[in-house]
Design a protein around this nucleic acid. Sequence first.
RNA 1: GGCACGGUAGCCAAGUGGUAAGGCAAUGGUCUGCAAAACCAUGUACCACCGGUUCGAAUCCGGUCCGUGCCUCCA
Length: 471
Amino acid sequence: MKLSFLNTMSRKLEEFKPIDDKNVRMYTCGPTVYNYAHIGNFRAYIFEDLLRRVIKLNGYNLTQTMNLTDVDDKTIRDSQAAGMSLNDFTAIYKKAFFADIDTLKIERAEHYPAATDFIPEMIDMIQGLIDKGFAYQADDKCVYYSINKFDDYGKLAKIDLENQRTGERVKSDEYEKESVSDFALWKAYVPADGDVKWDSPWGEGRPGWHIECSAMSKATLGNHFDLHTGGIDNMFPHHEDEIAQSEACNGCKYVNFWLHCAHLQVNGKKMSKSLGNFHTINELLGHGYKGEEIRWVLIATHYRVGLNFEIDSSTLESKSLQEARTSIARINNFIERVNDKAGDEQSDEISALCKTTKEKFLNGLNDDLNIAEALGAMFEFIRTVNKALDSGSAVGKEEVIDVMKYIDTIFDVMTFEQKNDVPQNIIDLAHERIQARADKNWGRADEIRDEIAAAGYVVEDSPEGPKVKKA
RNA sequence: GGCACGGUAGCCAAGUGGUAAGGCAAUGGUCUGCAAAACCAUGUACCACCGGUUCGAAUCCGGUCCGUGCCUCCA
């Protein structure tokens, strides 16, 4: 099927057609760099990585922008607490973010604009909104967006402001805004901001959060682009506010497709500091889990469904990651088996299967990133080829491996080249064991197997002889 | 109160009108000196509940119950 997405704006499945023929432009909301990102944050970035790879697999050129929010209440607050300048402080977490991205094999976007590098663009945009009558400066010197001026406000989140419950967090009497729902475009400087401030036509201060994405998407992708994504929590108010700002300022439609991914939960509960169930990538790596395994857990559940990450938060034993390890091992074992047993001859049946597997795989992904369909196609392929290998019928290595490589352009967890990094002393032991077995000295053979195991390797006997691998 | 998203075998999870993909676990088998690993085989799931539409519904409509998220700066 043709590439299609469930568009949040229409709540319907829509065929994807880029604005500019083969060139796709996508904006993905990135991290606020005030702390190490947690596994829940990365669910969104993995979803965006999947989206990115599927778009490319369909033959499009892609330009992706992911912003780095490096100035806001939290970055200011925590940099002060750390006794560091804002830049030095956020630099730590920017660096950590990119390290984590690499660990999870998330492809790099084309642009990573940092908010502090685009202040003039934001100021221009705010001025534009004031000039057009969509924004005003209040008595508190802050500049606000007047949502009553934008007729379509609420169209994305389907929010009807009349029916909203005013939360505890909004105390209307503290505000000097025309309407409680108006949001800040420019926040006037207050002493608590320390030395974090920029000059503007409205006095010193700093930008609001929403204007950052409107200005940076405009600067890197233009006024009207194809896709905009983020976590479901960003839908309202963040994305709603971006639409209001950009469409009012630029006078044209902002984004064609909006995609939102659901939250990750830990053991069925929302992540929260008080439950202590925040987990970072480094923490999981430290417990021996691999980036590929984390990637698998995050990618293998459909993006619009809640993902339940199972882990014992005190011991870090994770059922989810164990299952990922099993799945990846099954796939890599298959590749190894094909490399060992398949030949040059290919049967018509397997050749046809290779073709239909690729089609089913792509069809699944094109149907709003239906990863379960795609996985089903892959596992059926593995099972059928395994059966052919067992029965001794012709299986062409090259074509089968080619299918797996095609699939791995999406998953990026497979191993095609076996690296033999077994140290010499272990290899020597393995040879000694071969001799012991030839002599039917089973006691010594088992002893050597234990020694090898103690060194962190496993020896597996197969019809082709013993294999030694890292445990 | 408003707006969303879910409830399919022990667990995870596809499937949106023609009586249910796939994975994990479990059980049996092949291989093996023994093991491990690997591979193969085996699953009729009252598709949350009630009513309706239809020749026919997990799938459409109405209602009920349960779970989750958002409702102003949390991916």
